[in-house]
């Protein structure tokens, strides 16, 4: 069952991405409803995939990288649907859906079996959930940053093309960027704390000073500085956009590093 729902979700997100990209490049607004409909259906099958997997496993299935990536993709689409519902910014889908599709594809590429966890690791899902939700915030900030840089460039070069007409106002993007970080950062912080506690229980040490952990701390520190810079000395607009793009690249590298090292279960 979960596998079927998972495949269905992949197909829906694939089609949704296609429609959203076509929407981005065409003058007409007509495609937005189709894209949105396909995405919404995909989101439903995705939710079912996650739930049935947990029911079958009899545990909160958020321990393996496959599960984490799938959850990340799901939360990303959730946030998109929420923003879309409130602000009707269809074009956001043209940027977020590809990202959701990529993370779901990477989930598909990772080992799918439900890991059998040692009792001390039963609560590792708290760490995964919080970290992934925090990362979703950074991903949205990243997308808002990319959209900001594009719109900024189009306005500066006075190229009033289809993309220009579809992208939202600059200050909307800047606000979206800010709100995403403001929400993502505390979640990631809690996620890191939960991870450290899990590690303490499992191994007796909060930190094993391995490169991935260090890299994760550097990323955390980076976002901390970005957030403080915005709140105190006005690192907003274009600078914030660039910084959040760089930051997310760091997040992705960290994740790849962790996966490469562990190839399997989080621990």
């Amino acid at each position: 069952m979960p596998a079927t729902f998972f495949i269905a979700t992949l197909v829906f997100y694939f089609i949704g991405t296609g429609f959203f990209l076509a929407y981005l490049l065409r003058r007409s607004e007509a495609l937005s409803n189709v894209s949105l409909g396909v995405t919404a259906v995909g989101f439903v099958t995705h939710t079912l995939a996650l739930l049935t997997r947990m029911l079958e496993a009899g545990q909160v299935a958020l321990a393996s990288f496959h599960e984490a990536m799938s959850f990340f993709s799901w939360a990303l689409v959730l946030v998109f649907l929420f923003v879309e519902f409130r602000h009707r910014i269809h074009v956001l889908g043209s940027f977020i859906l590809p990202l959701a599709l990529i993370s779901l594809l990477s989930a598909a590429a990772l080992p799918k079996e439900v890991p059998t966890l040692e009792p001390v690791l039963k609560t590792v899902w708290v760490h995964v959930t919080l970290s992934m939700l925090g990362t979703v915030g950074f991903a949205v900030a990243f997308v808002a940053g990319i959209m900001y840089v594009i719109q900024d460039g189009l306005l500066k070069s006075k190229r009033f093309n289809v993309l220009y007409s579809k992208l939202p106002p600059l200050d909307f993007l800047d606000r979206l960027n800010q709100q995403s970080i403001v929400m993502g950062f505390p979640l990631l912080t809690l996620g890191i704390i939960a991870g450290a506690l899990s590690a303490e229980f499992a191994r007796g040490s909060y930190l094993s000073w391995n490169p991935e952990q260090l890299w994760a701390l550097v990323t955390w520190l980076f976002y901390f500085v970005v957030l403080m810079g915005r709140l105190t000395v006005g690192w907003r607009a274009k600078r914030a956009a660039y910084l959040t793009i760089i930051g997310f690249a760091g997040v992705v590298l960290t994740f790849i590093g962790v996966v490469m090292k562990a190839h399997g279960a989080v621990a």
């Binding site: 719109q151 939202p168 106002p169 600059l170 200050d171």
Partner: peptide
């Protein structure tokens, strides 16, 4: 029209 592409409100 341009102002509305910079400021949403």
């Amino acid at each position: 029209e341009l102002a509305k592409k910079i400021f949403s409100n």
